[in-house]
Amino acid sequence: MLDYLLSFLILTGAVFTLIGSLGLARLRDFYTRLHGPTKATTLGVGSLLIASALYFSTRGAGLSLHEVLVTLFLFITAPVSAHLLAKAALHLRLKSLAKPPEEEGGEA
């Protein structure tokens, strides 16, 4: 039973990681590319880390929860770097499929 759950989590994680990178390679302008990796990857790595926590908790000596720390850290930092990248792209005025907003000096 646990084996199946672990396998499911590992496969989901790997598939979502792949889909995130596929979005990065496949989509056609920078802003849409930004969507793929920042999301699919957090969920992918998240479920891989949960699988790892489960695996070591049931096999090793005692509870192993430090994977939660990486998950937490990724969930806090991923949106920040995505936001900064989007801001940098607006600053550089990269070409976009969507109509870009009118110029104004943004901060924060």
Partner: peptide, 11 residues
């Protein structure tokens, strides 16, 4: 663009 490369590094 450079932003694409940074995004790729991040991923």
């Amino acid at each position: 663009s450079p932003a694409d490369r940074i995004l790729a590094l991040d991923t």
